[in-house]
Amino acid sequence: MNQRLDRINHFLDGVTRNRREIVTPEGVVLETDVANNGERLTAFLIDFLFWILATILLYLVFALLAVEHMSGAVASTIIFLFAFLLRNLYFIHFELTTQGSTPGKRIVNLRVIDRNGGPLLPGAIIARNLTREVEIFLPLGLFLTMPKIAAGWSFWLSASYFGWIVLISALPFFNRDHLRAGDLIAGTMVISMPRRKLLAELVEAQAKYVFTRSQLDAYGAFELQVLEEVLRRPPSEETKEIQRQICGRICRKIGWTGSDPSGDALDFLKAFYTAERAHLEREQLFGRYRSDKADQSSGRK
């Protein structure tokens, strides 16, 4: 079952993902796609950009309203305090109110879930986000604000902060679920929820490309596998030409009388692949297996 799901996901997404089964408290097994490090880093950088923009806006508003009545030290302290609160409340607020997704995660199609399959509790969200301060922001802030290296102890102290950042940042590379320290402490993980364009296209194409039983009976499992390999080919002009040729052959073989699919051969082939696969699997359930288009036997198992 897992091999079949991996194959389908590779066909739909174009990549092979690290999958994990999670058992809910009700005993339901859910299969999830673990978010990879690149996706998580992209989502974090997007959120970090949003936070920087919000901080700059806050700084400008505060500067216009209050700084002129305060000393520089007091103003800086207040600004840093508000930046700290905004940074943490940004992640905590969005993950609490949008079921484990920040704006960056939504753009990259990621979501935080409980590793044990239970509900994502507020305590876990707060813990995983406050831990980010110790993981990244605190040592990074200390490293950036370190005075100029003038003595040996300053170098080693600065190096220790930098080493801390590197070690903590590298943690997701050393576990199969790409968990950072906050996830380990909070019992959470980040999963990928890709919007599979293929599925939406197939739904939209149902009215345009509808195949009859006799048309689907024209091919067997071997031809379906060949078609799948064609659909896996990297995009190129050569691939498009091959797809157009195969589309024409299929149309002639099944006696296609609908709209001319030559302009969108890839959509036609995807729709035909999905319909043919479902047809062959349904036939196999009734003991009718067809190995290829030349196999005319019935009741074969």
Results as ranks from 00 to 15, higher is better:
272 F>A: 01
266 L>Q: 12
31 E>T: 15
107 I>D: 02
111 R>Y: 09
50 F>M: 14
295 D>E: 10
203 V>G: 05
270 K>T: 05
218 A>H: 10
69 H>I: 09
78 I>R: 00
31 E>G: 12
295 D>T: 08
276 E>N: 07
14 G>N: 01
2 N>Q: 15
80 F>Q: 13
44 F>R: 09
122 P>Q: 04
235 P>D: 08
138 L>C: 08
136 I>D: 01
301 K>S: 11
291 S>P: 00
261 P>T: 12
60 L>Y: 08
293 K>N: 11
117 G>P: 03
248 G>T: 06
59 Y>K: 07
158 S>F: 12
87 R>V: 04
280 L>A: 06
84 F>Q: 05
186 A>S: 12
74 V>K: 12
286 F>A: 10
148 K>D: 14
122 P>H: 12
266 L>R: 14
209 Y>M: 02
145 T>P: 08
61 V>C: 06
78 I>Y: 02
102 T>G: 02
296 Q>I: 12
70 M>L: 15
135 E>W: 03
124 A>G: 07
271 A>V: 00
66 A>C: 14
154 S>D: 15
300 R>T: 14
14 G>H: 01
45 L>C: 12
32 T>M: 12
86 L>V: 06
287 G>T: 05
37 N>L: 15
197 K>E: 13
146 M>D: 00
245 Q>W: 06
75 A>K: 05
293 K>F: 09
300 R>E: 07
92 I>Q: 00
13 D>V: 07
58 L>G: 01
5 L>Y: 11
106 R>M: 15
268 F>T: 03
230 V>A: 10
280 L>W: 02
119 P>A: 03
250 I>L: 10
3 Q>G: 05
148 K>L: 14
72 G>M: 03
199 L>K: 05
62 F>G: 06
103 P>W: 04
91 F>C: 07
184 L>E: 05
168 I>Y: 03
31 E>K: 10
193 M>W: 07
227 L>A: 05
227 L>W: 01
289 Y>P: 01
49 L>R: 08
23 V>S: 08
93 H>L: 11
191 I>E: 00
42 T>D: 01
72 G>E: 04
174 F>N: 04
76 S>I: 08
61 V>I: 15
69 H>K: 13
23 V>T: 12
228 E>P: 00
11 F>E: 00
204 E>Y: 10
113 I>E: 01
244 R>W: 07
285 L>T: 07
249 R>F: 14
28 V>Q: 08
16 T>V: 15
189 M>L: 15
198 L>Q: 05
268 F>G: 00
53 L>K: 09
300 R>S: 14
136 I>S: 01
210 V>W: 06
285 L>Y: 06
215 Q>P: 11
88 N>C: 04
237 E>S: 07
